[in-house]
């Protein structure tokens, strides 16, 4: 389904500031696979996701989804297949537009927009229904400008928008890290339930070892711009925080992984 091969991206090459964001990263995901990504700060997790979504053009390497080569496609052309939620709740939604209008954007993702009115009663009902899943009361605030919502509400909206059209691939980059614990929990529950119900193929970056153990069909650990270790099937299912730490012991960065 997803195949990343030999992805390489170097910032400021040949200068003292040289940064290897991706240094020959390889990854492949099967359809319906939910993969958790862990790794220390600066390991290249966000870079991997950004390379897949197109926000970070690669120097070298190839990105394919279902056999189609996406490597040279700009972000907006990949959006039909890929949806993302980022750590920063402020960047996933348009603050000066209403909740309903933001939902409409997600509804239109990957389709040709028409010249007929965007919001009608039918759509508003649909949006209300989708938003009610979260449990933060967003369904009653369809006409509120998103800029007036709390960070948690905005992030929940981003998530609902991302899973709206059942994307081929869902990218989550520490999407609950900036939220208060209660909201983070609600958003994580809604995430897992959306992935399960729609059998989404997903890549989720987390710093939370408990989440890494509890969720996902497979797990990868990144280090210095590469996928160092991966786990799947029975091994992943049986993993505990302790076995994870042990398994990743050989890499020097394991201490950076914080326990839940």
């Amino acid at each position: 389904m997803l195949r990343v091969s030999q992805a390489r991206k170097i910032f400021y090459p040949g200068t003292p500031d040289e940064r290897k964001a991706l240094d020959g990263a390889d990854l492949s995901l099967a359809t319906g696979e939910f993969c958790v990504v862990i790794g220390s700060n600066g390991a290249g997790k966000s870079s991997l996701l950004n390379a897949i979504s197109g926000r970070m053009p690669l120097d070298e390497g190839r990105i394919e989804i279902n056999g189609a080569d996406l490597t040279d496609l700009p972000v907006f052309k990949r959006a039909a297949r890929i949806a993302s939620v980022f750590q920063d709740p402020m960047i996933g939604t348009a603050p000066t537009m209403t909740v309903a209008e933001n939902m409409l954007l997600a509804e239109l993702r990957g389709r040709r927009s028409s010249l007929s009115p965007g919001l009608n009663a039918e759509r508003r009902d649909l949006f209300r229904e989708r938003l009610s899943v979260i449990g933060l009361g967003l369904e009653d605030r369809l006409d509120t400008n998103v800029g007036l919502l709390s960070g948690g509400q905005r992030q929940s909206l981003s998530l609902v928008m991302a899973v709206s059209n059942q994307p081929d691939l869902l990218l989550l980059d520490e999407h609950t890290a900036a939220l208060d614990p209660r909201t983070a929990d609600l958003v994580m529950k809604a995430t897992i339930s959306a992935i399960d119900t729609h059998d989404l193929t997903a890549l989720m970056v987390t710093h939370n070892m408990k989440h890494a153990v509890d969720y996902g069909d497979s797990l990868i650990m990144m280090d210095s711009g590469r996928v160092r270790l991966s786990m799947s099937g029975e091994e992943k299912a049986a993993a505990t925080v302790e076995t994870l730490i042990e398994r990743f012991h050989e890499t020097p960065d394991w201490l950076m992984l914080q326990e839940a």
Binding site: F76, L115, P117
Partner: peptide
């Protein structure tokens, strides 16, 4: 009329948040 159509809402999104608009498949 236009700014409340599907197309019009995408235009407003392009101005409201170019990064987010691109991620929603809008050709900013």
């Amino acid at each position: 009329y236009f700014f409340l159509t599907e197309r019009g809402v995408t235009v407003r999104a392009a101005g409201a948040g170019p990064q987010m608009a691109e991620a929603q498949g809008i050709n900013v």
